[in-house]
Computed example of a mutant assay.
Amino acid sequence: MEEYVDVMDAEGRYTGESVPKSLAHSKGLFHPTVHIWFYTREGYILLQQRGRSKPTFPMLWDVSVAGHVSSGESISDAAIREIEEEIGLSLEKGELHLLGVFKSEQLHHKTLIDREFHHSFLCELNTPLAALRKQDSEVEALKLIPLHTLAEEVWGMANPQRYVPHDISYYKAVIKAIKERL
């Protein structure tokens, strides 16, 4: 059965309409997603390499955990669910710290239009990388890289073709917020 998502307007307000996720993408309807950025006290950030069968940005490095918010699901419940599904961690809502909500629009082709509001969280990673269990259908690989390397490669545009092309202001907000927590 296909997942349903709640439709939002261009300002991020819920419209009261719920549609299949495929329809939201084919029609370019705004809908909520969650992004969770994990970092370590030592200044590393957890990245996931998107699965090779993903319809968008296969094999590119991206946010630690990301996913759609199911219709009627709370943002925090979606974040906790996605963390469990994608990297096998069971966390409490209090461990997540809301960074903000970021509007994103990406036209992949005329029948795949991502219009999303990324509800983005930060969370300290207290589990060794080797203990994480990646979701094979979604995630090709996981790795920890120094935060300054991510900043150089996406913010400084030294190696952007390795990463999902989020807006530079989004990457800057994430990097700045993590630096403030270290």
Rank of each mutant, 00 (worst) to 15 (best):
L29N: 09
W37M: 10
M1V: 14
K176Y: 01
E180W: 02
T111E: 13
E124P: 07
K110R: 14
K93G: 10
E116V: 14
N126F: 01
L125S: 02
G67P: 12
Y44H: 11
L47G: 08
V69K: 11
E86Y: 01
G94Y: 03
Q135F: 07
E84Y: 13
D114M: 15
W155Y: 09
A131I: 02
K93R: 15
S104N: 14
Y44G: 01
K134Y: 11
S137R: 15
D77Y: 08
E153F: 00
S22F: 09
V5R: 08
Q48R: 15
S137D: 15
S74N: 06
S64K: 02
M8N: 04
Y170V: 10
M8H: 10
D9I: 07
L144V: 05
E85D: 14
L96H: 03
L147V: 10
A177W: 06
E17F: 03
E152A: 14
S104Q: 15
L125W: 06
I87D: 07
I75H: 00
I113M: 08
I87A: 07
K179E: 13
A131Q: 12
R81I: 03
G43N: 06
R41V: 06
V7T: 04
P58M: 06
F117T: 03
T56W: 08
H109A: 03
I75D: 04
Y44N: 13
K93Y: 01
E11S: 15
H119A: 03
P146C: 00
Q49W: 05
S120D: 01
S104F: 11
K103V: 12
E95H: 09
V34S: 02
R162E: 09
A66L: 13
P58Y: 09
L99M: 03
V5E: 01
V65P: 11
E92G: 13
A177P: 14
I45E: 04
S70Y: 05
D114E: 13
F117K: 05
L132V: 06
T127S: 06
H148T: 12
L98E: 08
R13W: 06
G156S: 02
H31K: 13
A173N: 01
T40G: 07
F38G: 02
L47R: 09
K54H: 14
D6G: 12
K103E: 13
E73W: 09
K54R: 12
E84F: 08
V63H: 04
H108C: 04
A78V: 03
P55K: 01
P128E: 13
A79K: 05
K21H: 11
G72Y: 03
L125N: 04
H97E: 15
R133I: 13
D62Q: 04
G88R: 02
I75W: 03
V164M: 01
W155D: 02
H166N: 08
H109M: 01
